[in-house]
């Protein structure tokens, strides 16, 4: 018999993993080689990445995405609160909104807003006068309304789930302190719902960065349309699409990182210690970090 302290524990060997990794690496290598040898001028992709119309397109993609998402969040909160209302008309309208805008394609909604002038020639704003719809409904505004109002329907569901996740005792405690319903919602319920709302909202925004490319169909010159306009002239289709793809990847990556820090901030108070940031992890690794 061997003495117990001399026994050696042998972990399970994962031979399958080695085989799998080799297969994947070989496939990846072949793919890279194919593109490296393809009839593609990579230098052109690099050139167009910083070309002014492409950069301007990326800027518009960012602008329309941020504004549409902001509109979506505001509408989402309003509709989520409406749906909670005890008034059946108010909650019914909230339900109708979600049903309509979540149930039809966003591309179709973009076309509807863009062509609004066909059915309403003039728009009148009480107290501000009126205007020709065709003048007001620019591609930018149509894109903003189409994307933002559609997003509002999805955000409403996200916000509703967030509010439902907050313990009822919180509302009771706030009311017992004499806080009104509005104050309770603003100061107590919504901040706590944030923890549930933020992760899917981050995903929504990253989706929005890409969905905004649909606005090309109503001639809003965002990134995809900018790339297409150039390649229809010079026929460097892949070079331009790759330049645009690089911009999309850059934007989605930056916002994914931002999302991590935002989630971390709203986790405050919900657990005893916050998740470690990659930079903190790096510091600990190289030994310059403060002891936690």
């Amino acid at each position: 018999m061997t003495a117990p302290e001399r026994l050696v524990a042998v972990p399970v060997r994962h031979y399958g993993r080695y085989v799998g990794a080799v297969v994947v690496l070989v496939a990846l290598g072949l793919l890279v080689r194919a593109f490296a040898q393809a009839d593609l001028q990579w230098s052109l992709t690099k050139h167009f990445f910083t070309f002014h119309t492409i950069v301007a397109g990326a800027g518009r993609t960012l602008l329309i995405s941020v504004l549409s998402q902001a509109l979506g969040i505001v509408l989402g909160v309003v509709v989520a609160v409406m749906r909670q209302s005890g008034n059946p008309v108010t909650s019914g309208v909230g339900w109708l909104y979600v049903w309509l805008f979540r149930g039809t394609p966003v591309l179709l909604q973009l076309f509807l807003w863009y062509n609004l002038g066909l059915v309403f020639q003039t728009l009148s704003f009480p107290g501000l006068g009126s205007a020709q719809t065709a003048d007001v409904m620019t591609p930018f505004l149509a894109a903003l309304l189409g994307l933002g109002i559609n997003e509002g329907a999805y955000m409403a569901e996200i916000v509703r789930a967030g509010i439902a996740a907050v313990d009822e005792g919180q509302t009771e405690a706030a009311q017992a302190l004499g806080m009104s319903r509005g104050l309770t919602l603003r100061r107590i319920v919504l901040p706590q719902a944030m923890r549930v709302i933020i992760p899917p909202t981050g995903n929504e925004f990253i989706n929005m960065l890409k969905t905004s490319s649909l606005a090309f169909a109503i001639t809003y010159p965002e990134l995809t349309l900018a790339a297409r306009d150039i390649y229809t002239n010079n026929l460097k289709v892949f070079e331009l699409l790759f330049a645009a793809a690089a911009w999309y990847l850059l934007m989605t990556t930056v916002f994914s990182i931002g999302q991590f820090y935002l989630e971390r901030r709203f986790a405050r108070g919900s657990s005893r210690s916050l998740p470690v940031t990659p930079i903190q992890r790096l510091r600990t690794l190289v030994g310059t970090g403060r002891q936690r």
Binding site: D167, G169, Q170, E172, A173, A174, A176, I188, P191, Q192, R268, G269, S270
Partner: peptide, 11 residues
């Protein structure tokens, strides 16, 4: 009012 489950605002 003081509750059995405290109901402090965690944030």
């Amino acid at each position: 009012m003081v509750f059995q489950r405290f109901n402090l605002f965690p944030h």
